[in-house]
Amino acid sequence: MSSTLRFVIAILIVAFYTLPLMLVQELALRTRLLSDRIVPRLWHRLTLGVLGVRVRMEGRPSTQRPQMIVANHVSWLDILVLGSLDGVHFIAKSEMRGWPILGTFARQQRSVFVERERRRTSPEQAREIAERLADGDPMVLFAEGTTGDGNRLLPFKSTLFSAAQLALASDRAESVTVQPVAITYLSKGGLRLDRRERAALSWIGDTDLLPNLVTVLQARPVDIVVRYGDPIPFLAKGDRKTVTREAEAQVRAMLTAGLRGTEI
């Protein structure tokens, strides 16, 4: 089957179930008759199936709230991958708000959109994230601030970790649980990826979304491993830079072990 035909079929299938699910999600948001986390998780799982992406989870996700999930970032696929495993909400770049389909679902999933390049807006953005954490919403932060090539970890930025401290100002919790998570792109077509192939699947910088989607479809099945690290309690008097370094060290160790096929 040609890549063009495979792409068209995938888009048609996703379109077939997306509109009805969006309507159900809108109903959930407006009426609270059902949890607004159910439909996004279902959509993510269905779409991963259409794309031929298989996800394996390792480790134990924390059930403690408030919770900030801190992960590395390789591709737009990371959102579908983490969203398929649990009812989470994302801290996303502001540009994503205008994306077709993904942007709409990001809004309906109650993502917080941030402008990382505008440092003056960081305190306001941190307060919005803090409110969501204090309300019990598990928030996903891609702490590198951008996407990498999947072969190495970029330094974590500590700015938005301040949201964890702000969430404790309401006195509704004694600490925020920071859960490190490593996303490893492991194989395609049943064969382990090398560095070049892994980088080709990543979505870096200003790369257009559609060509990357075609690359993913051509590589199917793609196997991705999500490994959960040890939860880190962030106390009201904790230091965000210390917590950032600890989370970064865990994610780097898990990513390295996943790429090498070893245990940690």
Rank of each mutant, 00 (worst) to 15 (best):
E58F: 06
V214R: 15
P155S: 11
P155Q: 11
T31H: 14
M139Q: 15
M68T: 07
M254D: 05
E248S: 11
N212L: 06
A15H: 03
L42W: 15
M22I: 08
R120H: 12
S94A: 12
V243Q: 07
R30H: 09
Q109W: 12
E174H: 12
E115P: 04
S3Q: 14
N151A: 03
F113C: 03
A28H: 11
S75W: 08
A163C: 03
A236T: 08
T262N: 03
I224Q: 10
L210C: 05
W99G: 00
R252V: 01
V53S: 04
D194T: 10
R54I: 01
T47K: 04
P61F: 00
V251G: 12
Q25M: 10
G83E: 03
A236K: 14
I224T: 10
L235E: 13
R110Y: 02
D208L: 09
R119H: 09
P66H: 12
G87F: 02
E131L: 13
R116T: 07
V222L: 12
R220T: 02
R97Y: 08
P155V: 13
V74E: 01
I91T: 08
A130K: 06
A253F: 05
E58G: 08
T147F: 01
V81P: 10
L42N: 05
L19Y: 05
K237A: 15
E197S: 11
Q64G: 11
S162A: 15
E248I: 07
A257P: 06
V74N: 14
E95H: 01
E95T: 05
F90N: 04
A71T: 13
I224D: 07
G261P: 00
S62C: 07
L21N: 08
A236G: 14
